[in-house]
Nucleic acid binder design. Structure first.
Lengths: 238, 238
DNA sequence: ACCTGAACACCGTTCAAGT
DNA sequence: ACCTGAACACCGTTCAAGT
């Protein structure tokens, strides 16, 4: 069973000595703290990966960690804060390996596709990231530093960096949501008659490559934004 | 008081004859149906405009309409469906007036800025729209038809229409979320030392126009996408 | 300091009873 | 068909009691 796997990974029995046979812990401060930001975040990610965001509650998170729900509030002030921790953790899964090793545009492409993919799998976090201050999100800030340094090194002037990054990122966030759209989202059904041009457009999509429509649109937009970023470049590297 | 205003607008007393003095209605089918999709949607919009999405519950919606919460379920199958109705209604507030009267790029700009502004005010709907099938969202489909016809008329080939629309829309959705970010979202605080380039980029933004950073980024991205759409054009109008 | 367990103030939704 | 009112199965969060 899936759930027992989570308990094996995150339960306390393997690190506590006084309840190896699984007796419930009594109230009172444990010898060693059972919870921590890292353990809560990791457990949340595992839980969500297996059960999805619909099954993610403070109760289910506590169950995974084998504590009472109220114990979580000694370490985190709200469910929202858990999600913020998770967001920052998820950001480490974004691939920034191209910066420093590849031409700037190759690096940006690899980063952008990876960023979209990661948050397509964590769509409920998108509205949070878009609004989360970088203070308190150190991994997110690390990523921004890598991107900013990469673009600056490629000749993008300082005053263009933030607009360029925000524009690309906004596109990525919207595209991450779009990647979760059902395949038939644009089927016009019995309203086809009243929307002839749009219906023709839906039917007239280029299907020859076998690529998902969301990927075709993402490539189109990403290349458009890359061209605009390239146009801002100046200096020796441009 | 604000709430009594909502009751005056959406309460039933002005259209019912048997309870003009405000006695609660008894159980049983009313002579004339109290609820409808249109009344529910309008009440939801008014409630959200005044109280925000945080205060939007099935209970508060029912209170606005002066019915019991359970009465709503005779007309709608879930809160999610109310939000879908609302999304489709909100879409009528997007300005498509440029199509047919202005050059294509002027029309697209007016539409895109308006679209972003409307959903910046309704950010919680963004994850829904991005995923909502056009069947059952007739106003949304109407908008798509207008955009598709406008772009097709400008010479954008059929097979490029969907990628172009989806890319621009994804950018708009992400930008609508970004427009709700706090002004200090990029303040690096005591982590400034470890992110020198990014910190310099934040401080080096062009503030001379007085424009909001979110608007600068939106313009940058929108113009980039417009240029790419323009590049797909062919035929007599291109 | 950090856990448990009981409790609080909600949620969205279901359903029998009523007209 | 469409309302009310009671009830259900949850939520996230608080807090006293315990070590």
């Amino acid at each position: 069973m899936v759930y027992s796997g989570l308990l094996t990974l995150f339960g306390r029995s393997h690190r506590m000595t006084d309840d190896a046979r699984g007796e419930p812990r009594r109230a009172g401060r444990p010898l060693e703290s059972v919870l921590s930001r890292a353990r809560i975040t990791t457990a949340a990610l595992a839980l969500i990966t297996i059960e999805g965001y619909g099954g993610f509650t403070m109760s289910s998170l506590a169950r995974t960690l084998q504590v009472a729900p109220s114990a979580l509030y000694n370490h985190v002030s709200s469910k929202h804060e858990v999600l913020q921790w998770l967001e920052d953790h998820v950001m480490t899964m974004v691939d920034v390996s191209g910066f420093g090793s590849e031409p700037w545009d190759v690096a940006v492409r690899r980063w952008a596709w990876s960023y979209r993919d990661v948050f397509a799998r964590h769509a409920p976090l998108v509205p949070l990231v878009a609004v989360l201050p970088v203070t308190g999100a150190p991994e997110t800030l690390r990523m921004y530093e890598t991107i900013a340094a990469g673009l600056a090194g490629a000749g993008v002037p300082v005053e263009s960096l933030i607009p360029a990054i925000v524009a690309v990122e906004s596109f990525i966030f919207g595209s991450a949501l779009d990647a979760n759209a059902p395949a038939d989202i644009f089927d016009t059904g019995d309203l086809a008659d009243s929307s002839p041009t749009f219906t023709a457009a839906v039917l007239g999509q280029d299907r020859s490559t076998g690529e998902r429509p969301a990927d075709v649109a993402f490539r189109f937009g990403l290349e458009a934004l890359l061209a605009a970023v390239a146009a801002t470049r100046r200096g020796p590297d441009a």
